[in-house]
């Protein structure tokens, strides 16, 4: 489980980091907290020849208001995020999601940028070298088979980032920086449903920060995570829901789900739903059904696809009932 030799860069600015990333291309990996990358490097499933360490990039970990929006730098640790007064005041569910990641030690090291970009996982991919030698490589390790869905022509590794669900439900945007400039995109456009390449990051591009819009009047949200144990584990399913409105009527309602496919997914009520009636049992039933239908998942380890769908339904219902004050 020893690491292969690699070069180590410590850029001071984002543009320097991007330039390095572009120059080094596929040979490079970005490292921030390292809680995901170093494990993969020890397993030998990711073998970068150089690491670009973002720790020294000035200001990349700041959490600050810019006008109405809350900007959370990619390098902010999950502990910083969940303890930030600004986060707790404006979108406490993001703190809830950060608190749901791994355990305290991982939250101290891991960053929000790293959690958003978390490599999709599966127990056939994330194994040591000698383990993997016992069977042909899967897609993710350069082979041509997916052990999660035998016969499949694509990789079905599961995206398991907790904070992504909260950010999707909150309608966050991400600022992506590249050597030529930058772009700001809604976070749902950032994710790609592909276990091999699950973000839209282009060569030389990196995630600099997430931008959270000002909370709407009466906004409330929650993140519910179902995992095997009370700590450490990745979600078997995670559901974030955000609702706003100062009267019984719903101004905005959005649900996001993580842990069930190669990318997180968004469930929103149909355009013509009767928002003035509020969060009625009928609407909850409808959204539960929509969430279950949209969840297209595969069996993994001892969790069957149908059980995972079932869980999504339960979590969506619980989240909505919690928001509705039931």
């Amino acid at each position: 489980m020893r690491l292969k030799k690699f070069e180590h860069f410590e850029p001071r600015t984002l543009s320097e980091a991007c330039r390095l990333l572009k120059e080094q291309g596929d040979k490079a990996a970005l490292i921030a907290g390292g809680t995901d990358l170093v494990v993969r490097m020890k397993y030998g499933v990711t073998q970068p020849q150089c690491l670009i360490n973002l720790k020294k990039v000035e200001g990349l970990g700041s959490i600050a208001l810019v006008g109405e929006n809350l900007h959370v730098g990619a390098l902010a640790t999950l502990t910083q995020v969940r303890c930030s007064d600004l986060v707790l005041e404006r979108c406490p569910m993001l703190a809830e999601a950060a608190l749901a990641v791994g355990a305290a030690q991982l939250q101290n090291m891991g960053t929000i940028g790293g959690n958003i970009c978390l490599e999709p996982r599966c127990w056939y991919f994330q194994q040591g070298r000698s383990w993997r030698q016992a069977r042909p490589d899967c897609f993710k390790n350069g082979g041509s088979v997916c052990y999660m869905a035998k016969g499949s022509r694509r990789c079905h590794a599961l995206y398991c980032g907790d904070t992504a669900a909260a950010l999707l439900a909150l309608g966050a945007k991400v600022r992506l920086v590249n050597p030529g400039g930058e772009r700001i995109v809604p976070i749902e456009e950032f994710f790609v449903d592909d276990g091999m390449r699950h973000t839209d990051l282009q060569p030389g591009e990196l995630l600099a920060e997430v931008i959270l819009p000002a909370p709407l009047p009466g906004q409330r949200g929650t993140y519910l995570k179902y995992r095997k144990r009370g700590a450490l584990d990745f979600p078997i399913a995670g559901v974030a829901a955000v609702m706003s409105g100062t009267t019984a009527a719903i101004a905005r309602l959005r649900i996001a789900i993580t842990g069930v496919g190669s990318s997180p997914l968004v469930v929103a009520p149909p355009p013509d739903y009767p928002s003035e009636a509020g969060l009625t049992p009928a609407l909850i039933d409808l959204l539960v059904e929509m969430a279950r239908k949209q969840t297209r998942t595969v069996s993994h380890m001892e969790v069957s696809a149908s059980y995972r769908k079932e869980l999504v339904g339960v979590l969506v219902r619980d989240a909505l009932e919690k928001l509705g004050g039931a």
């Binding site: 127990w123 056939y124 383990w131 144990r229 380890m301």
Partner: peptide, 18 residues
């Protein structure tokens, strides 16, 4: 005959919370 749970994350020993 291959163990899919050869690490403490996958094997799932209960934590103090459990």
């Amino acid at each position: 005959g291959q163990n899919l749970t050869p690490n403490l994350t996958a094997y799932g020993l209960p934590t103090v919370y459990d």
